[in-house]
Structure formats: C-alpha cells, structure tokens
C-alpha cells in the first residue's frame, strides 16, 4: 500500500512542498581581517511541487539549484521567504517530521553511501531512526523494488557498481515512504547505459508509489524525459518556468534558448553560436538589473537597470512564466 494512494485526491492540486519567495545568502570569508562578503545563492525563488508530480530544476554552476535542494530538504534554513509543507512553514515542523516527507538522492553514489555500513543497514537506517515497520521485511521489499538482487543486502557499498549504489541510495530514500524525492543530478556520475536504467527506475517508482520528484539536472534531455514541468534557474532566480515539453521545444527567455541550443543530440551536426560572450555567472558579483544581461545576446539598455519579475508569457499558455523584460513587452 503506497503512501500516495492513502492520500485524498484533492491534495493533487495543492502543492505538497513549496518554496515561496525563498532567499539564501551565505557570508563568504574573504580572509582573516577582511569583512565577509555576501554570496546570494537564491534571490526570491518560488517553486511548487504537487503530490505525485515530477518537476525539473535546470541550471548551471552558481545557479543555486543545490542550495534550493538543501532548503527543501530542511538541512538548511532560508534567510528570507519560507519553505512550506502542505502549506505549513518548515519552521513549525521538527527535523524528523520534515525527513518523513522529503528525502534526497545525491549525485555521487560513491559518496552518498557510508562505506563502513552494509547495504541492509544503509537501507534500514531511516526505518530504525523513525522506528517504523518491520525493518527486515521492508528492506527486502525495497531491495526488490529497486531491482537489486537480494544477496546485495550483505554487501558493502564498495563491492557494488555505480548503478547498483545509486539503486541502494534510492531504496534508502524511499524507505519511509516520503512524499517527495529530491534528486540532485542522480545520473550525471553514471554511464549512459546505466543512466537509462536509473531513469526507468525513477519513472517506475513514481508510477508505483506516487512519490513526487524534484529532478535537479543540467541535462535538458533527462528533464524532458522524466518531468512534466521545468523551472530554469539562473544566479538564484527562476528565469523561465512552465510545462517541460513547451519550455524545451519553444524556450522564450534568452538563457533558456541558449540552454536548449546547447543540447547536443545524436544525429545533430555543427555547433551553433550561443552569443553568450565570456562572462560567467558569479554569485559573489550579481549584475545590476537583469542578472543575465552581461551574457544576453538580446540585451537592451533597460535590461541593465530593471530587474525583471517572473510574469506570464504573452501569447503563451497560462501556466508559463518568464523573467525577461523583452519577452514581457512582446519584442522577443
């Protein structure tokens, strides 16, 4: 009996996990005697994960996507805004309560499993911590569910391949039947043939258990394959958000366009010029106005002064938004 099936149907519309205007500022030490500098990892991000849905979060280094993951997991607290579970702020819930609702899957399956513990112990740990269920039976069930042979229960992580380790990590995350899995680049450390197995597994598990997925990735093909919605993050802001098929097929924000053009698919030839110049996003020095303007091929003067808000796309579907002045005024 899966957790999602026990929930009433009405919850499908309301977000189970939501970031509302979330900001996160770190202070970075600049040496012994210098004042610490602020690093704005997230600057007002809204993101809603609905029960049983899959949403992709795409961005490059410095976009703040991993910071957002840590905030949604409750490992770190936002400096502004709020993370809500079923509409209740994260602060009102205990760490353990948060842990039962949302679990992580990390990128590197070699670092995410404790090398000192056996596989059964790793998968069973959440059950022991939360004192739920018949541990031995549930561990066996999870091992079957993620498609591992039963005998791995006695193995140590170092005896497993990368794909097997990632299956163990997924089994551990599912152990206490969370509502949301936050997967941070779950396949980018794996070979392509293994990546396909893990993507299939995530799709199957979603169907079987009704768990919602937040898939953080730099790979638009992976996001397009697994997710209904996608949000594109640039320097701590969502710059484009909407149905994955629409956004990937017809991106509107210049950065989303550049990302889509960067997808090198098999069968394609030649290399388009992205026109991004040599600037790179530095969260320690966020540009004035639109934070993408130094790299934007479609920049106009207004972009250097006005910081665009995330608004509806003229002529686009109602659930699609961009943060671009020129898209908003209809000139792009």
């Amino acid at each position: 009996m899966s957790a999602a099936a026990q929930k009433p149907e009405v919850s499908a519309a309301a977000p189970v996990l939501e970031a509302r205007g979330v900001t996160k500022v770190y202070s970075v030490s600049a040496g012994l005697f210098a004042a610490p500098r602020p690093l704005t990892a997230l600057a007002g991000v809204d993101l809603a994960i609905r029960a049983g849905s899959a949403i992709g979060l795409v961005g490059e280094s410095g976009s703040g996507k991993s910071t957002l993951a840590r905030l949604l997991l409750g490992i770190e607290q936002p400096t502004g805004g709020a993370v809500l579970f079923d509409g209740k702020p994260l602060g009102a819930l205990s760490r353990r309560a948060v842990a039962r609702r949302v679990q992580p899957v990390f990128q590197d399956p070699f670092g995410s499993l404790n090398p000192s513990h056996g596989v059964a112990e790793i998968i069973g740990l959440p059950l022991a911590v939360h004192r739920v269920g018949d541990k031995a039976a549930r561990v066996a069930e999870l091992i079957d569910q993620v498609g591992l042979p039963r005998r791995v229960a006695d193995a140590r992580p170092r005896e497993l391949s990368g794909g097997q380790r990632q299956r163990v990590a997924i089994a551990r995350a599912l152990a206490i039947r969370p509502d949301v899995l936050v997967c941070d680049e779950p396949t980018s450390a794996l070979d392509v043939s293994v990546q396909a197995q893990i993507l299939n597994l995530l799709a199957d598990l979603r169907r079987e258990t009704g768990v919602a997925l937040l898939l953080i990735s730099h790979n638009l093909s992976v996001v397009g394959h697994l997710c209904e919605r996608v949000a594109i993050l640039y320097l701590g802001r969502v710059v484009e958000e909407g149905p994955a098929a629409d956004v990937l097929a017809v991106p509107r924000h210049p950065y989303a366009k550049a990302l889509a053009a960067s997808v090198l698919s098999v069968g394609g030839t030649g290399l388009p010029d992205l026109g991004l110049g040599q600037e790179w996003p530095n969260p320690l020095a966020i540009p004035s106005g639109c934070r993408f303007h130094p790299r934007c091929p479609s920049v106009v003067d207004a972009c250097r002064e006005t910081d665009p808000a995330l608004t509806g796309v003229p002529g686009g579907s109602a659930d699609r938004h961009t943060a671009c002045l020129r898209v908003a005024e209809g000139t792009l």
Binding site: G74, I75, A99, G111, S112, V129
Partner: peptide, 26 residues
C-alpha cells in the same frame, strides 16, 4: 561534507548518531 552525512541529516538522525555511527567508523 560527504553525502552520506548529508543523507543522515536529511533522514532526521540525531547528532550523536551522526557523529558516532556515520562519521566515527570512517
């Protein structure tokens, strides 16, 4: 900074558990 420690944190493990069971053996 290892992800298995972050996983334990996200699991709601207590501090003594993280120190004694996750970090110390390694």
């Amino acid at each position: 900074s290892a992800d298995y420690v972050r996983a334990a944190e996200a699991m709601g493990c207590s501090l003594p558990h993280i120190l004694a069971r996750e970090i110390l053996p390694n």
